[in-house]
């Protein structure tokens, strides 16, 4: 798309201020520092939890790592710290606004999920696409379920758990871990294929060209400002 002064942009709105070919591509502000801190901290904690968890649970790894008492201690501490970055982020208006975006589905979101040509279509995609909205809900639920069942596993006698509940907590904790690992594999794969998205989470700003392709409606409303 050429950027000559006075020409209409993709949305038909005249671009202002006028841009020349010498200007660097514009960046759109996407994630606040608090949000980026929360994402990075949570990612580190999750990786520690998965590494220590599998060192306790998966025997071939346990045999190599050993050291059960300290591995368990690290796992428990990381588990208790897991919700903290999110709670800190909830104090910020930007994060709460983004949660609102992730929560709401417009009719185009269902279309987006259904269609194989979703990225070539003219569906309206705002700040997050439908896949990201669903993934966020799943990640959030996995975190809550793992934290809750983790507490049950840590204090079975103090909570006077029945045998059945204790077994249930164990099975659900393990099964949710596997589901989370699968979800994270997809998350990492998409991140590898979308370096502009990785940059947006790393720096807080997103390349405007990329945003116009992937989040057209969001980019348009951002560029109105």
């Amino acid at each position: 798309m050429t950027r000559t002064a006075g020409s209409a942009g993709r949305t038909g709105v005249p671009m202002s201020p006028p841009e020349s070919l010498a200007d660097p591509p514009r960046k759109l502000a996407r994630f606040s520092p608090v949000e980026r801190f929360a994402h990075r901290s949570t990612a580190v904690l999750v990786l520690v939890l998965i590494a220590t968890g599998f060192s306790l649970f998966y025997q071939p790894l346990a045999l190599i790592v050993g050291r059960r008492p300290i591995v368990e201690a690290i796992h428990v501490v990381a588990g208790f710290l897991l919700p903290v970055p999110t709670f800190i982020a909830l104090l910020s208006a930007e994060f709460r606004a983004d949660l609102g975006h992730l929560n709401r589905f417009a009719p185009d979101d269902w279309e987006w999920l259904r269609r194989r040509d979703r990225r070539r279509s003219s569906l309206a995609v705002h700040k997050f696409n439908a896949g990201q909205k669903l993934a966020a809900a799943c990640f959030g639920a996995a975190g809550v379920v793992l934290f809750g069942t983790g507490l049950l596993l840590l204090f079975p006698d103090q909570l006077s758990l029945s045998d059945g509940v204790r077994q249930g907590a164990t099975v659900v904790h393990d099964a949710t871990t596997l589901a989370l690992v699968a979800l994270l594999a997809g998350h990492a794969r998409l991140a590898m294929r979308h370096p502009e998205a990785r940059a947006a989470m790393r720096t807080g700003v997103m390349d405007a060209e990329y945003a116009r392709r992937e989040y057209a409606a969001w980019a348009a409303s951002e560029e109105k400002e």
Partner: peptide
């Protein structure tokens, strides 16, 4: 827009809780 995010979140958490309660047979 419909609050699908919240519904999916709460639904999955409820599923987890049901799994805990169904401990014996599930295990």
């Amino acid at each position: 827009g419909t609050p699908v995010g919240r519904r999916v979140f709460l639904g999955l958490v409820a599923l987890g809780a049901a799994g805990v309660a169904a401990g014996g047979p599930l295990s």
